[in-house]
Amino acid sequence: MHLNIRNIGLNFDKDGVAFLKVWAPKASIVSTLLEDRAITLDLERAPHGYWILKTDQIKPGDLYWVILDDEQLPDPASLSQPQGVHGPSRAVDLLHYVVPNDNKWINYPLNEYLIYELHTGTFSPPGTFGGIIQQLDYLNELGINAIELLPIASFPGRRNWGYDGVFPFAVQESYGGAEGLKALVKACHDKGIAIILDVVYNHMGPEGNYLPKFGPYFTDQYHTPWGSAINFDDNGCDGVREFFIENALMWFRDFHIDALRLDAVHAIKDFGAVHILQEISRRTAILSAQTGRIHYLIAESDLNDPRYISDVQNNGLGMDSQWIDEWAIDLNKGLEAILELDKFINKDSTCVIPFSSDGVFVHPPIEIRVSKSDKSAFLSQA
């Protein structure tokens, strides 16, 4: 299969032939309905609970549904939800959305990242990826060389903090969709700015979450502050694991995202032989070897556990970094944050950060969260 084709959902090869792959292990019949043309196409049962279809009847831009035992549902691996989380999915040709002239971009060493976290919907008046592009010169003037986007997976409505996403592969349409995101990536790389994307692999939002209709995506063995945990180690977890691994790879491979910030990994429950983070790390390394591009995995964790950033070969989870976010100061004291961070790194006894660098297990970047009610920024310095 072509390097740039996902192994889940609806995709197109270089000749424009469509491949649809749906994981629905308990379904008896699976088909797809092309809404605008009222065409129904049956999928064939494949091993391990998958259903597949190869056809030249589906074209980019087509609206389609997945019919699961007579129930009409959006594709859980949809790349676009133009009518919202309850509407039909839209066929997207990822090979068409190539980030142009991006081969010259070389990702920075992680310890050189100076990060500005932003919310796409509130960072600019338009509240879109295009609005961010208009502000890149401003970010350059600040000395920023990396931006971190809060989650952009499709959610109900037009504005959301981002942590209620329910279609992990679909870029929020009100922000500009897949095409808008790729334009932002190109513009950032042209300006010397890396892009970190915040992804959520510990829960799904409540509205528009159709995953349980398709398979055992959740488990009652564990609970998170947001409800049932994602099923990474219970019965039937293989398809769930592959779903989220493919999601991580898609952002790197197809959108040229430079790093993923994995939300609240302490709420990812996996006590199987191979932790899901280990597998994401391993598959990311394989992808990097294939493409020659450098990608980073950054964990958010409140456990201060060195296993997250230890090598997989040593039974670590293989993350490249994890945040320190126990210390926060007001936005107007940003200079103080930088000075105190320097003391922290150099083990200066006058440092006011309320814990010792000797007992903190991190790799750069080290995060100091500087916040205020009307604006926020992340300042990072190795």
Rank of each mutant, 00 (worst) to 15 (best):
C188V: 11
I152Y: 05
G162M: 08
V200C: 04
S174K: 04
E148S: 14
S154A: 14
F167W: 03
V166M: 11
P156M: 01
N145P: 04
A170D: 12
G157A: 13
F169N: 03
F167S: 07
N140P: 09
A178F: 08
G143Y: 03
D164T: 04
S154C: 06
N202T: 15
A187D: 12
E148L: 15
A194C: 09
L181C: 10
E173W: 13
N140Q: 15
F169A: 07
I195G: 02
I193Y: 02
F167K: 08
G165Q: 11
A187Y: 06
K191S: 12
Y175H: 14
R158Q: 14
I144N: 08
H189Q: 14
L197P: 06
D198C: 15
G162V: 02
Q172N: 08
Q172C: 08
L149S: 05
A153S: 06
D190N: 15
R159A: 15
E148Q: 15
F169E: 02
K182D: 12
R159C: 10
A194S: 13
G180T: 01
I196C: 01
S154K: 15
L150V: 00
L149T: 03
Y201M: 00
E141C: 15
V200M: 09
I152N: 07
P151A: 04
N160Y: 00
L181W: 01
Y138A: 15
S154E: 04
G157F: 13
D198N: 12
S154V: 10
P156N: 03
I195T: 09
I193W: 01
V199K: 00
R158D: 15
E179I: 00
S174C: 12
E148T: 10
Q172A: 09
D164C: 05
G165Y: 00
F155V: 05
G176S: 06
D198R: 10
I144E: 00
D164I: 04
V171D: 01
L184E: 07
Y175S: 11
D198Y: 13
S174E: 14
W161Q: 14
G192D: 14
I147Y: 05
A194K: 02
N160L: 05
G162A: 11
G180H: 01
E173R: 14
L149G: 01
P156S: 03
F155K: 04
G192W: 11
V199R: 00
V200F: 14
R158P: 12
Y163I: 05
Y163A: 02
F167N: 06
F169S: 08
R159W: 11
A146K: 02
G143F: 04
N160E: 07
N160H: 05
G157S: 02
L181T: 06
H189N: 09
F169I: 12
A194Q: 04
G176A: 11
F167M: 13
F169Y: 01
D190P: 10
A194V: 13
F155W: 04
A194M: 09
D190L: 13
A146Q: 08
I195R: 00
K182A: 08
D164R: 04
L149D: 02
L181M: 08
E141W: 13
I147E: 00
N145Q: 11
G143W: 06
V171I: 14
G157C: 02
A170G: 12
G143N: 06
Y163Q: 02
L184G: 01
L139N: 02
G143L: 11
I196E: 00
L149A: 05
N202G: 09
G165K: 12
Q172R: 01
G165T: 03
